[in-house]
């Protein structure tokens, strides 16, 4: 058997299981992603998408299996700022009294000293990140005054400022305007060229076909995983969504 060089994989999750107080949320899940790959994570609500993200970021502990990030443990990936998580708009308190600048600066916290005093390089990283998502006019705007798309871009900027090599995005396209959608898809191409690895969850099947090299269909465990063109079939999608046909879910065109 050929030996696998684990360093080649950005993400290497092997047979991972997560349970909350005995209730199984995810079992025997595998995922391997290389630099520059974009993978779509598709499944029903409650299928374990968020749990998968939580396991990769170390927000929940896995009860079985192994996760390697760049060949290292999740703990050291946290220390190295390797993974950035971009939350769903619904997952954050939009009324929190905090500005765009402050949110993006949080991307630098992990590499600052204990008082979180920004150095010049941190300020520059934040400026650049905000410019890349086209929010320079909104530096001091409270996040509560932003549109859904602008808020999404703010959190993308935080991930950029963090200089993470792995991006986990929870529903990046939900509730955003066309301009933001266009900007995000341009950023994806840039990220890919920079060698970043992207795992995104989505409900929108068109986006999967458009952006994702790979797709991971899950329903508590992996239903199918592989190249989008091979795996993203009506049969697999039907299995993933508990027997409901994709025609019914996404219309006959998709």
């Amino acid at each position: 058997m050929e030996s696998i060089n684990y360093q080649n994989f950005r993400i290497d999750a092997e047979n991972i299981c997560v349970d909350y107080n005995g209730k199984v949320a995810l079992y025997d899940a595998n995922l391997r992603l290389k630099p520059g790959q974009i993978c779509g994570l598709v499944g029903m609500n409650g299928a374990g998408k968020t749990t998968f993200f939580n396991a990769l970021t170390g927000f929940v502990n896995i009860s079985k299996g192994k996760i390697r990030i760049n060949g290292e443990s999740v703990r050291s990936a946290q220390k190295d700022q390797t993974i950035a998580y971009v939350p769903q708009n619904e997952g954050i308190d939009s009324q929190f009294p905090i500005s765009v600048w402050d949110v993006v600066m949080m991307g630098r916290y992990g590499s600052m000293n204990i008082f979180r005093c920004p150095r010049e390089s941190d300020v520059q990283a934040v400026k650049d990140a905000i410019e890349r998502v086209d929010l320079t006019d909104h530096l001091s705007t409270p996040i509560g005054n932003l549109s859904g798309g602008q808020r999404k871009r703010t959190f993308l900027a935080r991930a950029i400022a963090q200089r993470a090599s792995i991006l986990l995005l929870d529903e990046p396209f939900s509730g955003v305007d066309i301009r933001t959608e266009k900007l995000i898809s341009e950023l994806f191409i840039q990220f890919k060229n920079e060698g970043k690895t992207i795992l995104l969850s989505t409900h929108d099947m068109i986006h999967v076909r458009e952006f994702c090299d790979l797709v991971l269909l899950i329903n508590k465990t992996v239903v199918a995983y592989g190249e989008t063109s091979e795996v993203f079939t009506p049969e697999n999608i039907t299995t993933t969504f508990g027997g409901i046909s994709p025609d019914f879910l996404f219309g006959p065109e998709s």
Binding site: T57, Q78, I98, Y109
Partner: peptide, 22 residues
Amino acid sequence: LIFRKDLMLYCFDPRHAKTVGI
């Protein structure tokens, strides 16, 4: 005063805090 910013981050987005090793 020492943990002012960390606590703010913890209140706002604990998941991000955890992800960056806080």
